[in-house]
């Protein structure tokens, strides 16, 4: 998920008019593409275990200073993992959640309503800000009206470690970061190629019709670029799912480790375990490519 966002932003930035931004993105892409993923995973893992403070560094010393401090008093990055506040679900939480979901739906409804107004009467309502407001404001209002049904349990230093909150283990964070950055670099290139594949004449024609660059991007360039982007994107997602098996490098128990490691050790039936493992990934791949195919067909271009 982060990889997609990174990739799309990166792809757009790589085409930026700004020379420094372009070069910076090029360095990012080449750096991640040309070094093995495994190296990145272990390097980031090493960074997180060796380069981050220990929980006891957070203790405030007698002179009032601490060797390390928490971000907003809520997040702590330590060599035992990243601590973030954990939500505590109050009695009315479900109600609040429902409102949140509803208001997001509402935002989409508003968008299509705005489009309809534009089509019917020609009035162009602002789209982005009201939609965001609709999505967020009711939830925040209700949050206070309902008397803060969802609290946050902040991690606090107790003894030699943090108490409370949720601990995200370092291996997971390292894996997630490395995979996102690595896949993001590839997606950057895909997005860039996709946007470049739309001929310059398309944006020129759109400009000549009086459309602004933003709208040109949304209505003309991106819909066409998407067609080119989807197939290689599919294979990137497949790669990503397969690369997640590298979790073994940092000792995070993914399917491969649980199935291939624990089960194998306990039963000693290598053949069956490998078969099961292979089938799992095969199934995952098939599902992903099936979904992406459906999406791809819906975006396909009509030709003669």
């Amino acid at each position: 998920m982060l990889a997609t966002i990174l990739g799309v932003i990166g792809g757009v930035l790589r085409l930026s008019k700004n020379w420094i931004v372009r070069k910076l993105m090029a360095v990012y892409v080449e750096g991640f593409r040309n070094v093995p993923l495994l190296l990145w995973i272990v390097a980031i893992y090493a960074l997180m275990t060796e380069g981050t403070p220990q929980p006891r560094d957070f203790r405030v010393a007698e002179d009032g200073t601490a060797a390390a401090s928490m971000i907003f008093d809520a997040f702590a990055i330590t060599n035992r993992g990243v601590y973030i506040p954990a939500p505590v679900w109050g009695p009315n939480a479900v109600f609040l959640l429902a409102i949140f979901v509803l208001s997001i739906v509402g935002a989409f409804v508003y968008r299509s309503y705005a489009k309809k107004v534009l089509f019917d009467t020609g009035r162009l309502l602002p789209m982005v800000w009201p939609a965001l407001l609709i999505a967020i404001v009711p939830t925040i209002l209700m949050y206070f009206i309902l008397g803060r049904p969802i609290g946050l349990d902040y991690p606090e230093l107790g003894g030699f470690n943090f108490q409370g909150g949720t601990q995200i283990s370092n291996p997971l964070t390292a894996l997630w970061l490395a995979l996102s950055l690595y896949t993001g670099a590839f997606i950057t290139e895909i997005v860039r190629a996709g946007i470049l594949s739309v001929s310059k004449g398309q944006s020129e024609a759109s400009f000549a019709l009086g459309m602004r660059p933003n709208r040109t991007m949304n209505l003309v360039i991106l819909p066409q670029a998407l067609r080119v982007i989807i197939p290689p994107m599919t294979s990137q997602y497949l790669n990503l799912s397969k690369n997640s098996s590298l979790a073994i490098a940092v000792g995070y128990p993914d399917v491969r480790a649980t199935l291939g490691g624990i089960t194998l050790n306990q039963t000693g039936r290598a053949l069956e375990c490998m078969l099961l493992l292979g089938l799992f990934y095969l199934g995952l791949s098939l599902i992903i490519s099936f979904l992406m195919n459906i999406y791809n067909n819906s975006k396909k271009l009509q030709e003669r």
Binding site: K242, R256, G260, G278, L282
Partner: peptide, 12 residues
């Protein structure tokens, strides 16, 4: 089948 399964599984 080969492409659907990660290299690491094949190595094992």
């Amino acid at each position: 089948i080969i492409r659907g399964v990660p290299l690491i599984v094949w190595l094992f």
